[in-house]
Design a protein around this nucleic acid. Structure first.
Lengths: 303, 303
DNA sequence: ACTCCTTACGGAGCACGTAACTATA
DNA sequence: TATAGTTACGTGCTCCGTAAGGAGT
């Protein structure tokens, strides 16, 4: 049994056990995959795959256990190569970050600027996605780590490092009547249609529960993944916006005004998450340190 | 990079980095090992071995990390094979137990008797050794689990299951004056030379501290790993014995008399320990269950 | 008839073995 | 000189690819 057999197993499991597809993904022919299967089953001495005739339709109970181990073994291979990369000055380094739109758009740029000053040659990849997908990316080691807000239920396979806390603000066009209030309360916000993040994104669940706990049922006019879209429709007059405070730019959003809601809405914590068994190269650890250092507790970029 | 390269790495590290010896252990020729090294270093892209001329003298920092991962990967391979074995009715099963002399001699027989009734065909291997060695055996997966007394400092890589508690008794020849005492205290024991277990074995450390805490300094006439040896010298009149209570046999030791010391000496806990990432086959888990079930809290075998 | 996996067979490459070479004590 | 590791080279095996065979839809 060698790692290539285990690789074939994992790819098969990610291809609905279609041997042809798996072969394509592995850049070998079907018969080679077939051989791998036969060898693997021969080595372990049992049926790994459930079959319907010759067609593979899944894994046996034992097969499932073996698949788990195979994934671990391949992750270890990646770690070994990562160690090599880490200690080899000449090799090209890559940093793959997963992040939500808000993080990618408003938080990461400053951190990346600082990072690039130290590691100008590292190739950067930023994968923007929803928090749920980001967790999957981190678990499959398709990104080195994911930066997202805790809204995902504890994943025992991930190490999560809290980075900073942030809260939301209300945005409205300069002349909007809500801005005249000296003291802003949740019930005042409910007097207008609300534009905010899609549920399941950056802790939007917390927001709605804060309203319902206060006995309020706000009218959500529109939800988006993307702060810029929220702002756009706030400008259009569709309602007032609830956005992450750090997503307001003094220069670009001068036509909008901000009201801090950190006393009214629960705070969110943004975390860095990565697979617990992953070897982190020194430059990757450095990035996390930068992220922790550069971003202050209240969500302002300290640059 | 394949598992065989990693295997070569680990064997090398266990052979003082002597390529010739490693080759012999692997049943291949030196040049093949040499090739493995070259390929491995080529694959990871860095020097893994420190060299003095051509001689290997150790691992680089990166090499050490890689070695750790290699061992993990190979352990996973073993797990996969264990899964296969577990689910394959036809394959020969093996149960490899590490135990101290006392456990192997006085506790295990009854458990093994029960186990053999359920799994008559399983091949049994009992490795008797000192607790420190038993820990090593379990860590290297040279036994499936070790049964020993907690005297080893917490090993984060081992899962330990407390099985039962036991204590010591005093043994002396039938007519020994100490047996005339109605109430036995530590200071009375110190009136005679003591024969007991070697320090570092089955919690003998606890025994001595119990004496010193009472301000006593007993005269240790003789120490042994083996209860039978202790009994022998007690019979010879060299002193009184302190032995694990379960090591007294009514039939065979009728010339000796027992006095329970469980009120005077601290209790010991016997544990089953195995590597945290090890896949335990069902029959192995069953053995642990039997061990937990058959042995009562006070160390008497309930059979 | 089509899809899909397995099996057979052949060739290229690779891994290991033999052996010569090199370096160190 | 003896010991130990690398390098060179040859061979056999293994692994993949081509292609034919068989099973299910």
């Amino acid at each position: 049994m060698e790692l290539r057999h285990l690789k074939t197993l994992t790819v098969l499991s990610e291809s609905d056990f279609n041997v042809t597809n798996a072969a394509n993904k592995l850049c070998i022919v079907q018969s080679a995959v077939s051989h791998h299967l036969a060898q693997l089953e021969n080595d372990v001495g049992i049926q790994v795959f459930m079959r319907k005739g010759k067609q593979l339709i899944g894994l046996t109970a034992a097969g499932n256990r073996i698949l788990k181990y195979a994934q671990q073994a391949l992750a270890i291979r990646e770690n070994i190569l990562a160690v090599g990369n880490d200690y080899n000055e000449d090799k090209e380094r890559v940093l793959r970050i997963g992040a939500t739109h808000t993080q990618a758009r408003y938080v990461l740029p400053a951190v990346i600027r600082a990072y690039r000053e130290i590691y100008p040659t590292v190739r950067l990849q930023i994968h923007q996605d929803s928090p749920m997908q980001l967790v999957q990316l981190a678990l499959k080691d398709e990104v080195d780590f994911s930066i997202c807000t805790e809204s995902l239920g504890d994943q025992p396979m991930l190490i999560t490092i809290p980075c900073y806390q942030w809260n939301r603000s209300l945005v409205a066009p300069k002349k909007h009547p809500i801005l005249k209030r000296k003291i802003l309360k949740l019930k005042h916000i409910c007097e207008y249609p609300i534009i905010t993040y899609i549920f399941g994104l950056t802790g939007s669940g917390h927001t709605t529960t804060a309203f319902t706990e206060a006995g309020l049922s706000p009218e959500i006019a529109l939800t988006a993944m993307d702060t810029d879209i929220i702002k756009t429709y706030v400008r259009e007059g569709l309602g007032v916006g609830l956005i992450a405070s750090m997503a307001y730019s003094v220069e670009q959003d001068s036509d909008l005004e901000l009201r801090d809601l950190s006393k009214l809405l629960p705070w969110e914590t943004t975390l860095v998450a990565y697979h617990k068994d992953k070897y982190l190269q020194r430059h990757q650890l450095h990035f996390i340190k930068l992220l922790e250092k550069m971003v202050t507790r209240n969500g302002k970029i300290s640059n």
